[in-house]
Amino acid sequence: MFYRLKIGRGLIMWASALVAGAVVLDFASSYALYALVPDPTSICENDSWIPTVPELLWLVLTAVVAIAIAGPFALRLSRRFVQPIDSLASAIRRAAQGDLSARAAMTGRPFGEISGLLADYNALADRLERSDKDMAVWNAVIAHELRTPVTILRGRLQGLSDGVFEPHPELLRNLVRHVEGLSRLVEDLRVVSLAEGGHLRLDHAEVDLRHALQDVVQFIAPTMPAHPIAVHLPASPVMVRCDALRVRQALIALLDNARRHANPGTINVSLATRNASVDLVVEDAGPGVPAELLARLFDTFSRAGSPRAGADGGSGLGLAVVRSIAMAHHGRVTYHQGEGGAARFVVTLPVDSTLAG
């Protein structure tokens, strides 16, 4: 396991080994010179410190042998530095030129620190490559989500301008709905982008979640005739220091998700208090989330593709928005399967999100 030693220890051991070898070689060669020669006095001149010609020749021979022995070891040691660093430099150059698939190869049995450096760079390159691919997906999906409502709005407005359509109230209401859908999509994209960058700002205030929940239900219930909403609230106030607007936005996203994907039936909305947190629960009438979607349920642009969603299947941002808002409050959102396969979403918020770690 010598090759796994850290650079400092490795260099010390290599240098010590070479010095020890040189000392042993020096003593051995000196002993051989004077012990094997029949008359040692023939190659030295009394006590003179000036080497004689035979002694000089022997020193040169000893140095050549030492270099011949140390050379391969030094070459092997240098490879453990040069090869991995060359590989890393090559990978960095390729990445700088746009090839994010470039990786540093673990060649030359690198020391511990160098091996860690290569591993860290490869991990960084993996993340950059995933981010680049995610960005391409983001751009494609956003373009797709914006194209349909913008095309409809442009066609209707052009028709109104050319006199093809009469500006009757139903047409105008339809245009307003498309504009509202675009506004929600833009806001959802903004929330998710800010949250992923760690820049989603919250306007904290003391809020009774019962009132916030009732406001949302009164607002959205008329748009969900096939999904009556049953509200279950504690008798006493549920005070939480949070951003009421963002919490309402998360609840609307959960209810809208149920409207799009759940079976017709009652949606139960409730609040449950704990010691230092509050659970906001939304449970629909099923059929629940497909098993293949669970791992990426709260990811951006993740959709179930349910037939119930129809053409209005949503942007795939709703649950990602809920997660972003919950995390911004130092909370979380989880999914559980309720009775009869119902989808049960629980948003857990600390009582004081400004102090939560």
Rank of each mutant, 00 (worst) to 15 (best):
G305Y: 07
A235T: 12
T151W: 15
H178N: 15
P72R: 00
D126H: 10
H178K: 14
R344Q: 09
D256H: 02
A123S: 11
P228Q: 12
R130S: 08
T107Y: 10
G10K: 05
V322C: 00
N174P: 08
P110V: 03
Y3I: 14
I43L: 07
V141D: 03
P225R: 13
R190M: 08
A291I: 10
A136G: 08
L5Q: 08
R94G: 04
A20L: 10
A102R: 06
P228N: 12
H261C: 09
I152F: 10
S29M: 11
F73P: 00
T348P: 02
E187C: 10
D215W: 09
D208W: 01
V60M: 09
D256F: 02
S193W: 06
R9W: 11
L171N: 05
M106L: 14
H336K: 11
A63S: 03
L172C: 10
T148Q: 15
S29I: 05
Q249E: 06
V207D: 02
K6A: 15
A104R: 01
G318M: 00
G340F: 05
S183R: 13
P169C: 12
D47G: 08
L157R: 14
L77D: 03
D120P: 06
P149Y: 08
N46F: 10
D203H: 11
A291K: 10
L128E: 05
I67T: 09
A35E: 04
R130I: 09
R94C: 04
R156T: 14
A66K: 05
D243T: 03
H232G: 04
D126Y: 12
R80L: 04
P290I: 02
P169R: 10
G286H: 06
L297A: 06
A226Y: 07
A258K: 02
L245T: 13
W58R: 01
G71R: 07
V278S: 01
R308N: 06
T334L: 07
L349E: 01
V278C: 02
S48T: 15
E145R: 09
G197H: 13
S161F: 15
V238D: 03
V346D: 07
D188A: 08
V53Q: 13
D208Q: 01
G198K: 00
I67V: 11
L153I: 13
T273F: 01
R147A: 14
A230S: 13
S193Y: 08
H227P: 08
A22L: 05
V24N: 01
Q218F: 10
L88I: 13
A295D: 09
V282E: 05
P38M: 00
S236Y: 09
I43P: 03
S315P: 02
L319C: 03
M239I: 15
R241E: 08
I267P: 00
P72E: 00
A143L: 14
S315C: 04
V217P: 02
A63P: 01
L61I: 06
T266C: 06
L349R: 02
